[in-house]
């Protein structure tokens, strides 16, 4: 319910700006997306509910041609996974976007920092007394990301997209704790 409301809000915002006259020069891209994540190996057959999140970012172009783009994006976001954890993150990805008419597909790979806060309390042991004290459970993790998506570009350069994303918490026991996410969002161009 929350996800569909946020998604509707994001799409409405995109349409509203899309209906305004196109700028003569493209402005700074602003990307907003909402996502549903779960702790899981990559799978479509057993998708499970997990947490919800929001991501805001921008992107830069190494190559920007009418039919394709080589891009690097930078994003910051937050997700909350009930009973398990919440996370703030900043990450960057590089990738390639191919246009066919107004439609496009893209794929990106990258990494970033994840400030993780488990829901369950943690404790540290005072070695001198052997007593345990409640301690901050927050911790920084490396956050590898891999994403691929499809979308549509409007004449005014605004984009709508849906993506399948994988990200991880590293290090975690056997190397990485994997998450997968489905996101939907829009990219607007703020006037310069």
């Amino acid at each position: 319910m929350k996800l569909s409301f946020t998604l509707a809000l994001v799409c409405t915002l995109g349409v509203a700006i899309a209906q305004s006259p196109p700028a003569s020069r493209p402005g700074v891209p602003l990307t907003i997306s909402v996502f549903a994540e779960s702790i899981s190996l990559p799978t479509f057959s057993h998708m499970q509910k997990g947490g919800l999140g929001l991501k805001i970012g921008t992107e830069f172009y190494y190559r920007n041609r009418p039919g394709s783009q080589t891009i690097q994006n930078v994003a910051a976001g937050y997700y909350h996974h009930p009973q398990v954890q919440s996370g703030w993150f900043v990450n960057t990805s590089v990738g390639y976007r191919k246009f066919v008419g107004g439609f496009f597909v893209d794929a990106l790979v990258g990494g970033g920092a994840l400030l993780l806060r488990p829901v369950a309390p943690s404790y540290t042991c005072d070695e001198s007394t052997g007593t345990y004290r409640k301690a901050s459970a927050a911790q920084f993790k490396f956050m590898p990301t891999l994403q691929t998506g499809i979308g549509y570009r409007l004449p005014n350069r605004a984009l709508f997209f849906a993506r399948y994303e994988l990200f991880g918490e590293m290090p975690f026991r056997s190397v990485v704790l994997p998450h997968q996410a489905i996101s939907a969002g829009t990219q607007l161009h703020l006037p310069k």
């Binding site: 009973q83 488990p118 369950a120 309390p121 943690s122 404790y123 540290t124 042991c125 345990y132 301690a135 459970a137 911790q139 290090p171 975690f172 026991r173």
Partner: peptide
């Protein structure tokens, strides 16, 4: 129950 779940030297309550 507790475990060093994130291998960060802290014991997390894993009873759930």
């Amino acid at each position: 129950g507790y475990a060093d779940f994130y291998t960060n030297g802290k014991l997390m309550d894993v009873s759930l």
